[in-house]
Computed example of a mutant assay.
Amino acid sequence: MSLILQSPAPLSANDIDAVRAIAQAPTLAPRAETVAAADACAALTPALREALDAYCGPRSIDWAIVPAGRKLSDFKLVAMDMDSTLITIECIDEIADFCGLKAEVSAITEAAMRGEITDFNESLRRRVALLKGLDASVLDRVYEERLRLSPGAETMLRTVQALGMRTLLVSGGFVHFTDKLKPRLKLDVTRANTLEIVDGKLTGQVLGEIVNADVKARTVQEVCAQIGADPSQAIVMGDGSNDLKMMAVAGLSVAFRAKPVVRAQASVAFNHVGLDGLLQLFAH
């Protein structure tokens, strides 16, 4: 197994030495100012995970233990959640802000993402119902005024696309946003929920099948089948509990700025570096 350290700031020699000792790595050498790597380290155990988190977390260092010898190009698909993963906002919370209900909707969103509300369909319907009567032009305002890509998103996508990997954006959010991001970022496939709009107003209803955890996992598997890839050749990136099922079918799962339940189950967690941290985990 290989150990990778990354940080937004330069890594100190003291931090590199300390982590090398914790992980029982024969060597841990700087690869760049903000990246260090070891070709061998101890197997990841709960105790080692706890020790690495305890040391690295307060120092804004992200660590990862990944299979040695793998290349990024061995993977065929990068699948991403949208809200709070590819982008920095939760779109439904920002939409709700335009009708003065952001706090109420955000509370439901947070509980759902932490896994405290287990019925995602019901939580989405409850939130969307609160938007009834809102002018649909608000959706464009959220996209133009509030939607921002997460750090490193464009660099990560350009690199994996140049390697011939396919990209999937699968979201429990809304097609109004995925449809705009698809051409902007040259994404291959997108899937999300459709808000019903009648006479220019949101009706408070969602049309068709809701994209929940099961649908996300199924979509990853379907896209893998379409491109002739095994799910083990998929990388899945997410932040909330409704991403866990699609992360479980993938060969590599990345928890990005994620809830604790997701960090605990993911292959890798990026709490400090951007999405382009993916590019440091494996040789290209």
Score class of each variant (00 low, 15 high):
S253V: 04
R191G: 00
K259Q: 12
A29C: 10
L278I: 10
A23V: 03
G152H: 06
I197P: 02
F270R: 06
Q233H: 12
I61R: 11
Q280M: 10
S232P: 00
D74E: 13
A111W: 03
W63Q: 10
K216G: 06
N14K: 13
A264C: 03
L139C: 11
Q161T: 13
G200W: 05
P231I: 05
T219S: 11
A51K: 15
A40I: 02
D239T: 08
S12M: 07
Q265D: 12
S137L: 01
F75H: 05
G152W: 06
S84L: 02
L207K: 14
A269R: 03
R49Q: 14
A258C: 07
I197M: 05
V160T: 04
D83W: 07
A32P: 01
L5M: 07
L169F: 12
M80R: 01
A229Y: 11
G173A: 12
G200H: 04
M246H: 00
V19I: 15
M246S: 01
D135E: 15
A29M: 14
Q6M: 15
S267F: 08
V170R: 05
S267G: 15
Q24G: 01
E116W: 08
A9V: 09
G251V: 02
P26E: 07
L5V: 01
A42R: 12
A36H: 07
A32V: 01
M237D: 02
A64E: 08
E209P: 01
V211A: 07
Q265V: 08
G238N: 09
G69Y: 10
L139K: 07
V273C: 10
A29H: 08
T159R: 15
L124H: 03
T155F: 00
L124M: 13
V206D: 02
G200M: 05
F270P: 05
L48D: 07
A47W: 00
A217V: 06
G152F: 09
K102A: 15
S150A: 14
L124D: 01
A13W: 04
A103G: 09
A107I: 01
C99G: 00
